[in-house]
Amino acid sequence: MAGLAPGDPQLVSMIVNHLKTQGLFDQFRRDCLADVDTKPAYLNLKQRVDNFVSNHLSNHTWSPHLNKNQLRNNIRQLVLQSGMLEQGVDRIVAQVVDPKVNHIFRPQVERVVREFLSPGSSSEEVPAPLPPAETKPDSNIPEQGL
């Protein structure tokens, strides 16, 4: 690890794996999911999807021969193609995750990274803060269904 430069993909991977083993991502996910269903963006998206599905189903007549799996998959594809999920999820992230990033998540991540990089150092030392993180989605974190 000593020979790896900051930003080296191998070092980044090691740090991300360490954060995962410490349970930080799971904790962040739980913290965010606990708040999601109270936010206007979630409630709005839920209402929009419910209305979309209801309107689509109103055009179908139920019969014992109706292929429910095919209908369900068709609705899922239509919802995905509509773009409402992408836009809605972006708003949910803005309302749920963004407010927590700098004052809750970042200090915890910085602490765990410091401990990982300097396992024997005193935790009372406060190094200079890391530069602001870019807001790119982490492709290594699986998406959770709504």
Rank of each mutant, 00 (worst) to 15 (best):
4 L>M: 12
8 D>E: 06
9 P>H: 05
9 P>K: 03
9 P>M: 01
10 Q>L: 10
10 Q>P: 07
11 L>N: 02
12 V>I: 15
12 V>C: 08
13 S>V: 03
14 M>Q: 14
17 N>I: 11
18 H>E: 07
19 L>N: 04
19 L>I: 09
20 K>G: 11
21 T>N: 11
26 D>N: 12
31 D>F: 06
33 L>Q: 13
35 D>C: 02
36 V>F: 05
40 P>E: 13
40 P>N: 09
41 A>L: 12
43 L>C: 10
43 L>I: 14
46 K>A: 11
47 Q>N: 13
48 R>L: 12
49 V>L: 02
50 D>Q: 13
52 F>P: 05
53 V>S: 04
54 S>H: 14
55 N>Y: 15
55 N>P: 07
56 H>L: 12
57 L>A: 09
57 L>S: 01
58 S>C: 14
59 N>I: 10
60 H>K: 08
61 T>Y: 03
61 T>Q: 14
64 P>H: 06
65 H>A: 15
67 N>S: 13
70 Q>M: 04
70 Q>T: 08
72 R>Y: 05
74 N>R: 07
75 I>G: 02
75 I>S: 02
76 R>C: 15
76 R>D: 05
77 Q>I: 03
77 Q>Y: 00
78 L>M: 12
80 L>A: 04
81 Q>N: 11
82 S>V: 04
84 M>W: 06
87 Q>K: 10
88 G>L: 06
88 G>C: 11
88 G>K: 07
89 V>C: 10
90 D>P: 04
91 R>T: 05
92 I>S: 00
93 V>C: 10
93 V>W: 03
94 A>W: 05
94 A>R: 10
95 Q>P: 00
96 V>H: 01
96 V>M: 01
96 V>I: 09
98 D>C: 03
98 D>L: 11
99 P>N: 06
100 K>S: 01
100 K>L: 10
100 K>F: 01
100 K>N: 01
101 V>D: 01
101 V>G: 00
102 N>W: 03
103 H>D: 03
103 H>K: 06
105 F>V: 07
106 R>F: 02
110 E>S: 15
111 R>I: 05
111 R>S: 15
113 V>P: 02
114 R>C: 14
116 F>L: 07
118 S>C: 06
118 S>A: 14
119 P>H: 14
120 G>D: 13
122 S>K: 13
123 S>K: 10
126 V>N: 06
127 P>G: 12
134 E>Q: 15
134 E>V: 09
135 T>Y: 01
135 T>R: 08
136 K>S: 04
136 K>N: 01
137 P>F: 03
137 P>S: 06
139 S>H: 04
139 S>V: 05
140 N>G: 10
141 I>G: 05
141 I>R: 06
141 I>E: 10
144 Q>C: 02
146 L>A: 05
